[in-house]
Nucleic acid binder design. Sequence first.
RNA 1: GCCGCCAUAGCUCAGUUGGUUAGAGCACCAGAUUGUGGAUCUGGGGGUCCCCCGUUCGAGCCGGGGUGGCGGUACCA
Length: 498
Amino acid sequence: MEARLPRGLADRDAAELAATAKMLDVIRSVFELYGFEALETPAIEYTDALGKFLPDQDRPNEGVFSFQDEDEQWLSLRYDLTAPLARFVAQNFDRLPKPYRSYRCGHVYRNEKAGPGRFRQFMQFDADTVGSASPAADAEICMMAADALERLGIQRGDYVIKINSRKLLDGVMKAIGLDGDDNAGRRLTVLRAIDKMDRLGPEGVKLLLGPGRKDESGDFTKGAELEADAIATIMSFSLGGQYTGGEPRFGLFDLLGRSNVGAEGAEELLEIEDLVRFCGYGADRIRIDPSVVRGLEYYTGPVFEADLAFATRDEKGNPVRFGSVGGGGRYDGLIGRFRAENTPATGFSIGVSRLYAALKLVGSPIVEAGGRTGPVVVLALDRDHIADYQRLAAALRAAGIPSELYLGASGMKAQMKYADRRNSPVVVIQGSNERAKGEVQIKDLIEGARASAAIATNEEWKALRPAQFAVPEGELAEKVQELLSRHASGAGAERSGA
RNA sequence: GCCGCCAUAGCUCAGUUGGUUAGAGCACCAGAUUGUGGAUCUGGGGGUCCCCCGUUCGAGCCGGGGUGGCGGUACCA
């Protein structure tokens, strides 16, 4: 049988786990700084709680991983952290403080085609305010998202939080006569087309709004078949609406009419913008972008999207499109599905896995391994004295130094290579000579590697035994500790100097 | 799902008009060295040439079908 992994899934090694843990710590600290508290919900929910049944069928949507319980009820792996939160809030409504501010982190699952930066299991870090309809809640969420990205080491200008409003989009649909139930299908097509502005550009979007578009492989996508002036209206809205602070606000009110739901959405957006500007967040960080659409189902008002502005390339130098590294919005109807009374809510999720992949690809220091060290390795030279070696390792551990006895069956050279590969800072050597004298050899692998640069021949290398010294057995832990702290402060000095 | 490209060692790839025992670099293992990482040198292990069927005296190479991978597109709630 071949050992293999389904597409869109990945194993994570020590370096990646360490880098991810660092990212999570940063995000958590920012979210807590804004007064959000931790909550965990399970990875599995009833499918109906996620709202993911196929229309007019009693089977779950194909995009979600689903299976049936013993009682034949459908269960699904969560596909985001928002729907489970809504379930939790509805279930515990009476005992939660309102507004309820919480954050959660975990893997979510989507049964979709995988690609670079697109996984079938990935991690999200999510924060939500439940029970506030105020645009202040939305503004705060956006500022927090910007703070989190910057604290992760993404330079200002290298990311942007784009905001738009579902109400605004609805208003535009109405303005071009696409309101009403009859036009639901075409509205969807139009919104999806607008959403592709980033990827396909204005020309591609125009084709999708009109006759349709043929892609690079020759495949044809049917368009919305709108009239030319309707297309022009949408395009001027989606493109012309992008502006930076201080410019005249887009002439939407004329288009929408004051009483339109679209005008209401615009008012809310502008209020959010005023709030973030007042707090010192400029258009380089948070800006209105009417081409943002995002999820089509549960968002009811403002929607947010975090995009990286820098270009990324894969190992072969091909440009890679990562899409958004976070997103969110207001979902005022989601909790009401479980309760008689409706509850407004807004939130934002950081796509940790995708962000990690993007940062890794551009070699960002946040996710580089940098200075990761393995355990001290006690070499096992003499098979009859394993207990002695085990005791040496135990002495090191007692002093709080991560240590291990080499447990393989190979010779000394292989053991040295093993230590090298484990990133060990130090190996401990005790052969019969040392044991007779009650000593151990401490070999400093970091200093040794440095010294090896100047050594040309193996004879010289072996004869010199660089960075190696003998100490009495009783002083082992103490001397190793000294050596480790010397390296730690050295590395620290290098870092602060750089 | 639809469209396109691709499939030879762990990885990256050569492989002549269809011809005998399928190669290289890197990686891995060992030796040179009774007990010392790196570099160098020498040697070694490792292949269902993705699978099946067909054409042929003969297929890694040609044809058909399948599977898998990559990319585009759709979907992404």
